[in-house]
Design a protein around this nucleic acid. Structure first.
Lengths: 298, 298
DNA sequence: TCTAATCTGTGAGAAAAACTCACATCCGAT
DNA sequence: ATCGGATGTGAGTTTTTCTCACAGATTAGA
């Protein structure tokens, strides 16, 4: 009835199949990456399961008996079907693109400049990147993983590779700093134009908290500032010299390096972290490789 | 290239196959005679091998994912081929007759009277009996086992079920004993007609040694005796009252029981034993069953 | 004929895999 | 609300499998 009714030990069948095909215990052992002794025992197990000799030990070699030959037919077919099916699935999985969703700002300012290198370093990944505005459900079918800044706790039913603590930094062009008194953070807040983003309403608060600035000073400064819908626009505004922006350091590291933006104060940790969130059922190996690459790069 | 190239763990594949077919971990576990936890772990192993979900955990049940369904096709076929092949071989082995070679005398005097009962007790054995005159090579293809009296040491490359020590006994008809002085063994040897067989030339020597009779007396007695080619003729001669025969006790137990033959002295062990000698590659299970039956019967 | 090379088989102990048990969790039905 | 029936999991145990080192046996060739 059931397919599995009193099947012999499967590993013994595999050893038999390999030995029958190779015509030698030693060759089969090599193929299976075990010692010949292991194969020899497996064959013994199988023969005692059936209660009959499957090989004739003739001299220093082996020959299939009539029963062995009969068994080989079906077992050989079965194993080739098995390996064919598994190989096909594996191939399909390897060929499938790995879809990463990523916030637009991070995508534009950090990931896209590195995409070529990423694809060169991890060609098997066949990375496909889509931009995820606002919140995107990582459980959606067409996304394997999401890159996002988020504060713990993270949902327990998803695996998350933590890549880097989120650090925010206040930046502006050199021109802005020249025209803005900024001996201290409080100075800056009192006179500068704050640029803010709707997607991270607490950013300035976190920064001023860390810098020990009075919340009232911040509230007043905000009155004079401007708010943008996306972080991306905020950064463009900062680059255009519209005021002082607050943003994760990774997004402005390049501009700071090149002198386009200047950050007078060190970056501040927010408690959140940039992480790679895996969709359930996603390939942990490929995601792990991606996470390792990202972590190295960050 | 090789069929076994990096196949997933086979037991995990079996668990997957059963689970996919049954649609439930619990049902699969029952079929495989393990706990559901064991199956659950195997599935996990397989999923992590492929790096993808094969089942979707939906509510209290499971559904195959697209990948799982793809895998099931090939794996299901493979396992059904496997179990079909194994079942066919097993069936063929069970249906094949078990051929036992047996010396003619033992066959005629002991085994044939019990054959019906043996076949009734062990119907799966499908016993076929052939007579083995003189020495018969148990390695011959058409014989699964040989029943024989032999003294140790036995060849190491054959398995031998020892059934019973050989015990020889001096027998004759009541008439013969009446006409032969037989207070002692020496008496008997001095006056009786010894019947001997060419196939067991040492039988009388072993007997007289055990009875403590002078070898010279035996030599003299032998002069007056007669020698038969086979044990079978020897026994016929004894039953006809031609003299005193020496034979394994099992061959004359029936006649002694019925009073046709009388054994004045207890049987003597020769050091040899009646054993079931297996041909290499013979079914140890069936042979074991036969040996157990024979041992019980003896 | 002896020797070296090349197989397979096996005993003992080590390593790895699989299993069980008991409990946790989660959904759906009474 | 709770119970029944399903899956998942941590810890520890049992079973299987493997390796290592050696033995026996056969073939090729000096």
């Amino acid at each position: 009835m059931s397919s599995a009714a009193s099947l012999p030990p499967l590993n013994a069948l595999r050893a038999f199949e390999a030995t029958a095909r190779c015509g030698s215990v030693t060759a089969a052992a090599e193929e299976l990456h075990v010692t010949h002794g292991a194969v020899s025992r497996q064959l013994r197990t199988l023969e005692s399961h059936f209660g009959t000799a499957l090989f004739e030990r003739v001299g220093r070699g082996l020959t299939l008996t009539a029963h062995g030959r009969e068994l080989q037919r079906s077992v050989g077919e079965a194993f080739s079907r098995l390996s064919e099916g598994c190989a096909t699935l594996k191939r399909r999985l390897d060929e499938a693109p790995f879809t990463l969703a990523c916030p637009g700002s991070l995508l534009a300012r950090w990931l896209i400049p590195r995409l070529d290198r990423l694809n060169a370093d991890l060609p098997a990944l066949r990375l496909r990147v889509i931009s995820s505005e606002h919140e995107l459900d990582p459980r959606r079918d067409d996304v394997d993983a999401t890159l996002r800044f988020a504060a713990p706790p993270w949902p327990a039913d998803l695996s998350v590779f933590t890549l880097r603590p989120e650090r925010i930094v206040a930046v502006a062009t050199p021109d802005v700093w020249r025209s803005t008194p900024s001996e201290t953070a409080a100075d800056m807040l009192a006179h500068g134009t704050l640029l803010d983003t709707a997607s991270r309403p607490q950013a300035w608060t976190q920064w001023t908290d860390a810098m020990g600035v009075d919340p009232e000073t911040l509230a007043a400064a905000r009155q004079r500032g401007r708010t943008f819908e996306h972080l991306y626009y905020l950064l463009e505004a900062a680059l255009s010299g519209l005021g002082v922006a607050i943003a994760p350091d990774v997004l402005v590291a390049g501009e700071i390096e090149r002198g386009q933006l200047v950050a007078p104060w060190p970056a501040v940790e927010t408690g959140a972290a940039l992480g790679l969130w895996l969709a359930p059922g996603a390939d942990e190996r490929r995601a792990g490789a991606l996470a390792a690459w990202l972590k190295r790069e960050l």
